[in-house]
């Protein structure tokens, strides 16, 4: 079949293999070593690596430049774009630049509101929303047109991604929202972290009922938990993350919370593998990237397919 962008991630997903992606946060400075160290660590165990775009509305090195650094190391980067900081002109020009540098997986996000980050006085842009961003990228790729309708010279091969939060109430609305993203042109989906597998399975059932799993590749999100404090913090303060009480209780009762956190993560992966329509996992090991190779190995997902 013809590939949309021909990235490693797209090839792995199209081959039918169970994909593994991970997230890497860029440096809070201009040093290249931070993202490069994470890249070296993640390269053997991931099909693609996401680079966040000023996550939690905290300023870091830009996603696209960090992606370039990963690309140089031979990784397949996923550039995350949030619509908080850039308008339609800036986003389109960044996308052209990214594709020119070989960065062709792009994840479209709303982004955390600036009020919760480290520049709360900033003016939020929100010129377009995440669904419109998907549409805009699809137009750039499939019609070779800018959002305004003007022709783009040459091809813009992009593999378009979007996020999904299967847990926020009203529950039934979340599937509707996914359907909208798929209709807009999302080729792959990376979900919010899953701790409540039963609820996720119910969501996937609704996804399958609508046939959405056949139209997009769904990668199930995971956040390995390092400590009881982290579990509590995520439960109470992290936007969009749902940590059930049982997880907190289990970590509280554990002798070694780190080991227990990894155990929970591995058990979740085993359960996710069994859910029909899940095409892979996306590991967001926040400031704990060094655990990803171990998790992928223990989950028996090594070696990664060569496609």
């Amino acid at each position: 079949m013809t590939m949309k962008a021909g990235t490693n991630l797209e090839k792995v997903l199209e081959s039918g293999a169970f994909a593994v992606t991970a997230e890497a946060g860029p440096a809070k400075g201009a040093v290249t070593s931070v993202i490069e160290r994470k890249g070296e660590m993640l390269k053997p165990c991931c099909d693609a690596v996401n680079v966040t775009d000023n996550q939690s509305a905290v300023v870091r090195m830009s996603s696209w430049s960090s992606c370039v650094l990963l690309k140089r190391l031979g990784l397949d980067p996923v550039m995350q774009i949030v619509v908080r900081d850039r308008n339609r002109l800036a986003i389109q020009s960044d996308v052209l630049g990214a594709v020119a540098m070989g960065i062709q997986n792009i994840l479209c996000l709303s982004g955390d509101h600036q009020a919760i980050g480290n520049h709360p006085d900033a003016k939020g842009v929100y010129d377009i929303d995440s669904i419109q961003l998907i549409q805009m990228l699809k137009g750039m790729r499939d019609e070779k047109k800018f959002q305004c309708g003007e022709e783009i010279s040459g091809e813009v091969p992009i593999f378009i991604g979007a996020a999904a939060n299967p847990f926020a109430a009203p529950f039934e609305y979340r599937v509707l929202r996914l359907a909208k993203k798929v209709k807009a042109g999302a080729d792959f989906i990376q979900t919010q972290a899953i701790f409540d597998v039963a609820k996720f399975a119910k969501w996937m059932e609704m996804v399958r009922d609508r046939g959405l799993d056949k139209q997009t590749h769904i990668l199930a999100g995971l956040v390995p938990i390092k400590s009881v404090g982290m579990a509590r913090y995520m439960k109470d303060y992290v936007s969009g993350v749902y940590v059930p009480d049982e997880v907190v209780t289990r970590l509280e009762g554990a002798k070694n919370a780190k080991e227990e956190g990894i155990k929970i993560c591995l058990e979740t992966i085993e359960q996710l593998k069994e859910i029909q329509g899940v095409h892979g996992i996306h590991i967001m090991a926040v400031a704990w990237e060094e655990m990803v190779p171990h998790i992928v190995e223990q989950a028996k997902l090594l070696p990664r397919p060569v496609v």
Binding site: S110, D129, L176, R177, K180, S239, G240
Partner: peptide
Amino acid sequence: KGLINGPCGG
């Protein structure tokens, strides 16, 4: 965020 296509994930 002035989102016109549904809520964010937050």
